[in-house]
Design a protein around this nucleic acid. Structure first.
Length: 323
DNA sequence: ACGTAAATAT
DNA sequence: TATATTTACG
């Protein structure tokens, strides 16, 4: 993402990766200085119904609005909208959105924090109820719009789909394996075998290959769903990894996966991705230089959401292999 | 107001 | 190029 080859080279003072779109805007910000979180408030009109009021602040040196109209771009292209009949003809009506003069559409920076909340929200709601509006509510971040959520959700879901494929396969295998395993060994035995990991490794690890190596498109973003769901494991905040860019912990290799039967299926895809890690790859995503601390959209310290166990969604603790 | 596809930006 | 996020449509 951030401009391909541009590595965060501060000596140059170029904080690339700024989410500036402005083609024309002060571009000469090269100043090692990190810009304070700018906040874009387009409260424009305090119109009542304005649920779409955007006010997003972006972390670290990201310039977001401040003055340039970020909007334009699309406006332009839209006008000249190609609308080539292919697929769903995007109505060229376009530009109907706003443009009223404020409304800078800024990219929401889904910081880990944000994402966390997102996930949490989804958790609480449960897959079925996890719709943008609700999620938004729970998240309590007012700077986001439903669309923002929806988008994010969409992405997560798409990923989910990808993995679904694997999942299914996994299921079959697992079924098989488990069955056999069950007969072959007792829990305690297994524990002996797999439980060596210690730490938070659950004693119940699915034997050998939990996942068949996907041979699908398997874009970069595939990840052996680690943490299936466990909210608590959803990475303690997870800071962006240091610049070393050492890719995220290799999901502990494909191996360990929670025990299927005992654990219910992931309540929601969202669990599987702790964003901002830009999935694998990302040899040097500029993003990581910043984004770390600042939390965009002042994450209102909304009352610690009483973690309502909400019936399902959580895996009961490993059924202590009582034997 | 939800889900998804297309568009666009980095 | 691929990916992330926004925008638009049904």
């Amino acid at each position: 993402m951030g401009g391909g080859e541009g590595f965060p080279d501060f000596s140059d003072g170029n904080l690339l990766d700024m989410s500036i779109n402005f083609d024309d805007l002060f571009v000469g910000i090269d100043d090692g200085d990190v810009l304070p979180d700018l906040e874009v408030d387009l409260a424009e009109f305090s119109a009542s119904g304005g649920e779409e009021s955007e006010s997003v602040s972006v972390s670290g040196g990201k310039v977001v609005g401040g003055k340039g109209e970020i909007v334009s771009k699309r406006e332009q292209s839209v006008s000249g909208n190609v609308n080539p009949l292919g697929g769903k003809g995007r109505k060229s009506s376009s530009q109907s959105k706003k443009n009223s003069q404020g409304k800078r559409k800024v990219k929401v920076d889904w910081t880990p924090e944000l994402h966390r909340r997102f996930v949490q929200a989804v958790e609480q709601l449960g897959v079925d109820k996890a719709v943008p509006s609700r999620i938004l509510e729970i998240m309590g971040i007012d700077c986001l719009t439903r669309h923002n959520i929806a988008s994010h959700l969409q992405m997560e879901n798409s990923i989910f789909d990808e993995e679904l494929w694997t999942m299914q396969k996994y299921r079959s295998h697992r079924k098989h394996l488990l069955f056999r395993e069950a007969e072959a060994a007792t829990w305690s035995q297994k524990r002996q075998i797999y439980g060596g990991g210690g730490k938070n490794m659950s004693p119940w690890l699915v034997p050998t290959m939990g996942f068949p190596p996907p041979m699908k498109p398997l874009p970069q973003h595939f990840r052996p769903l680690h943490v299936w769901g466990h909210p608590s494991v959803d990475q303690p905040l997870m800071q962006v990894w240091p610049k070393h860019l050492a890719p995220p912990p290799p999901a502990a290799a494909w191996g360990p996966t929670p025990h299927p039967t005992l654990a219910r299926p992931p309540p929601d895809p969202s669990f599987w991705h702790s964003h901002h890690q830009k999935r694998f790859q990302a040899p040097n995503s500029p993003r990581d230089s910043i984004t770390t601390t600042t939390t965009p959209c002042h994450v209102q310290s909304r009352t610690p959401r009483q973690w309502r166990p909400h019936q399902t969604n959580y895996w009961s603790p490993p059924p202590t292999p009582s034997f």
